[in-house]
Nucleic acid binder design. Sequence first.
DNA 1: CTTCTTAGTGTATGCGCTTACATTCAAATG
DNA 2: CATTTGAATGTAAGCGCATACACTAAGAAG
Lengths: 370, 370
Amino acid sequence: MARKPTVYDVAREADVSIATVSRVLRTPERVRPQTRQTVLNAISLLGYLPSGSARSLAARKTNSIGLFLPNIDQLDQIGEFELTSDDAADMVIDPPQGQEDNTDSLYFDEVLRGCELESWRQGLSLMVSIGLRGKGDDIPQLINSMSEKVDGLIVLARSVPDTVLAFLRKRLPVVMIANAPANQENEFDLVRVSNRKGMYVLVRHLVEEHGVTSMAYVAGTDDSPDNGKRYEGFCEGLRSEGLEPSAAPIYRGQFSQSSAYQITGSLVRQGTLPRALVCANDQMALGALRALSEAGVDVPGQVIVTGFDGIKETAVSRPRLTTVRQPMVDLGRAAVSTLVKRLEDPDSPPISTELPVRVELRESCEGAMD
Amino acid sequence: MARKPTVYDVAREADVSIATVSRVLRTPERVRPQTRQTVLNAISLLGYLPSGSARSLAARKTNSIGLFLPNIDQLDQIGEFELTSDDAADMVIDPPQGQEDNTDSLYFDEVLRGCELESWRQGLSLMVSIGLRGKGDDIPQLINSMSEKVDGLIVLARSVPDTVLAFLRKRLPVVMIANAPANQENEFDLVRVSNRKGMYVLVRHLVEEHGVTSMAYVAGTDDSPDNGKRYEGFCEGLRSEGLEPSAAPIYRGQFSQSSAYQITGSLVRQGTLPRALVCANDQMALGALRALSEAGVDVPGQVIVTGFDGIKETAVSRPRLTTVRQPMVDLGRAAVSTLVKRLEDPDSPPISTELPVRVELRESCEGAMD
DNA sequence: CTTCTTAGTGTATGCGCTTACATTCAAATG
DNA sequence: CATTTGAATGTAAGCGCATACACTAAGAAG
């Protein structure tokens, strides 16, 4: 590949000035059709591709936005990748489920999809990067990586440490998905779902339709605002039915299958299973399901199980899982949409959007039984 | 947000030249520690963030690479997105599985993850974009979108029309994942998996361990090289066991659950079920499983079902699915790694890498039975 | 004491584009 | 026919950075 052709090359080839070349690309209607064609021919002849850097520099904007996804496990531990060809097919019996507990990725892929989609619609490029949770002080790395190349950022909750966030926010528009750093909810542009309302509706359903009066909450990690909101909804739901939230036990899980698996297992052994296990997310609900299945406890006959998020596995599990589905693609779209608004009008007050959720009733709560 | 500070502002603040500021960032060891500190202070005081565009322009490279993922359905049909807040939670009974047949995304998310990971390791930024399958002639849009901002591209098979690919390839390094355009396999840098070998090993396993002599192949779409290679492996496997491939029926599906569901359904009705249904991908295997389950056919007792890909659902389905797992994350990493090599040495011959697959035996083929 | 190095810094140029402004020229106007 | 006007194009000035090269000062070498 020879040196890449530039406007100058095209201009010379078409025997016009560089300004005309640029105009053919930016504002073709201001160029005489004949000239335009000459230039286009030259462009195609030379295989000219404008330089995004130069364009961005001159325009003082990149038309790109960045998306931070949460960390994958421990990035530090990820080693070299060796590029070796190997036409092989090993055989493995009953392979362990590797990353079953990588709760995050299940959810983020769809958000990404939404961002991608909406960026495309808006004519923006999307840059994605792994977050830097835990690597709080490596701001140079961060800068090198992405922030200097975009007009604004979308950050999934907890994918970037608050200190870094504060740093970034000072010089770039930042839109948060799911939730903002503590105590700053009102300073960030924000897109989230109705966690509280979703859980509220679900709990009321359990009480009203299934007459459940004894339920337990299987919680996620404490530091998760999602978890907090969902628990709030849980309590309000109970109260609205005249039940006392404090009477409902809370079991603290980690949002992971294994944590709920263990919790449920010990409930079985202690014989303290409630009528319904309301889990803070789907992964935990799946874990509970597994434990109950192994213990021979009938779901939903003996115990009802519900999840939250609406990941794909909920539609395949046995029994299929009742859950509260988040509009994840729309979350992504809304985030991009918000960022675009922010870029258009940097000084307007923070934009906060709450997207509706959908309570999906399936067999795990008898919702779809005959 | 005021005008963004530049090197000039920092230089003035620190009372040095812009060259020194630049050096502090690029080659700190060449600056006297004391000066360096002064500059760093100024940078932090002003909240200076270097301009990626300017940097890239001066350096003549962007340190970014692009990734094309396949189309999401019909992009054209995707409408405006309206940003409205709505704190609601509707209720739906037994929701239909919306995009169950969006085969692609299941697979690509993990590839993306690998690209992301490896880009991060290599200090590159990753730009992702939806492919333009079907929009073959909208090259201007394409250019605007991304290609002009990156040093090289990674393209997932069939996400970009061949014409566009030809266009891009002339001015940017392009690495293909899965397969190159027909008749150009030897001209592209390529990363793929051992489709043939995987299916070969699987088929031999079915014959040798389960004594299967009657099996059918549920094929994907014709235009898929993946499908082709897998079928080759299928045939070779049979031949190697002294069986005649032409005796094994082929049923042509679309890689989708529903296609295999229908195929399997009619086999049940006709009473022409083979001992084993070897599916070209997991989605179809899941569809088959569903049809068999509804027909009350025992898997694996009466019919063995196998998939290909190793998507997550295979580990949750009932029975869990025997499949050939592709190292999807590694596919992504290998692609980035290849692209980096290519950028370092633009004129070396095409790099082609074949990654090993893993045959994962689960209940759907009795592999994990007691 | 002079000359040569070398570390540290500044000056100036160019990266490839966009765009305000200047120029040209033909058609429209009086 | 002189003048105005507007469309089409060219000229040139940045955009913010990296870096080759020039320069300075101070120590090393002679």
